[in-house]
Design a protein around this nucleic acid. Structure first.
Length: 237
DNA sequence: GCATTAATTGGTC
DNA sequence: GACCAATTAATGC
């Protein structure tokens, strides 16, 4: 985890809440207290149950956020990409994180400690307001997603999960712009690895999905979406 | 190139 | 649909 320096003004993650407010005079002193460091692929940088150490903003790379379940396996809560926030649920009243987070690719993280961020929010009300909107939005989405997942078939869970990943990360040259292990897809969809593999190979045979090793591509979006039938339960991200 | 891990397939309950 | 075993592919060192 090597520390590096990245100026917010030089960053092009326009969706980052800090970036959005980084030209304001009031936040200047706090931007200097930001810690940016590299996190290699596979490294876990937030451990469920560990003391809260502020918030992380992703400068480059992709991250999975997950919880450990009773059995010893894990449930992926969400995927996080450039400009987005990790660890926000520990912010404020919690003393320990209630989630774990690992880098899916080589990732650069910007960290603000809880104290610094709190002070910054007080000094910059527009930033505070954006944070409030972010939290409200997150809450609404997680409620909507929880309702839907329960009543889906295994096939629908996979289709829905892949569609979500497709929408979030996009697709270029025929393949989705993120490479996930089968296990990660399984943990996200809440099903076993075996099931994921079987659905994926079925979709491949049916010509709905293009598969090349770990890379997956949606062949025909219209047909793929039609798999969800009239329910149209896609996840929000 | 070898060793470890992940992916896949087939079978059983 | 869950669980297990066996084979093959991919990856790290």
């Amino acid at each position: 985890m090597h520390k590096i320096t990245v100026e917010c003004t030089a960053c092009n993650n326009e969706n980052c809440l800090i970036k959005k407010h980084c030209y304001s005079e009031a936040v200047q002193p706090y931007l200097k207290l930001k810690n940016t460091f590299k996190c290699n692929k596979g490294l876990q940088f937030i451990l469920e149950g560990a003391p809260v150490n502020g918030l992380y903003f992703i400068y480059r790379g992709d991250v999975k956020v997950y919880k450990h379940t009773a059995n010893m396996d894990s449930q992926i809560i969400r995927f996080v990409k450039e400009g987005e926030i990790v660890g926000h649920r520990g912010f404020g009243t919690n003393f320990v994180y209630d989630i774990s987070a690992s880098a899916l690719s080589d990732t650069y993280l910007c960290n603000f400690s809880t104290d610094v961020l709190i002070e910054m929010l007080h000094k910059e009300p527009p930033l505070m307001f954006d944070f409030m909107l972010f939290y409200a939005d997150q809450l609404q989405k997680s409620e909507a997603n929880a309702k839907l997942f329960g009543q889906m078939s295994v096939r629908e869970k996979v289709v829905n999960g892949l569609l979500f990943i497709y929408r979030k990360f996009g697709q270029s040259e025929g393949y989705i712009n993120i490479v996930l292990s089968r296990k990660d897809i399984a943990d996200f969809a809440g099903i076993s690895i075996d099931q994921v593999i079987r659905v994926i190979s079925a979709l491949k045979k049916e010509g709905l999905l293009v598969v090349s090793g770990k890379k997956l591509g949606i062949a025909n979006l219209t047909r793929f979406e039609a798999e969800l039938g009239d329910t149209h339960h896609f996840l929000e991200g």
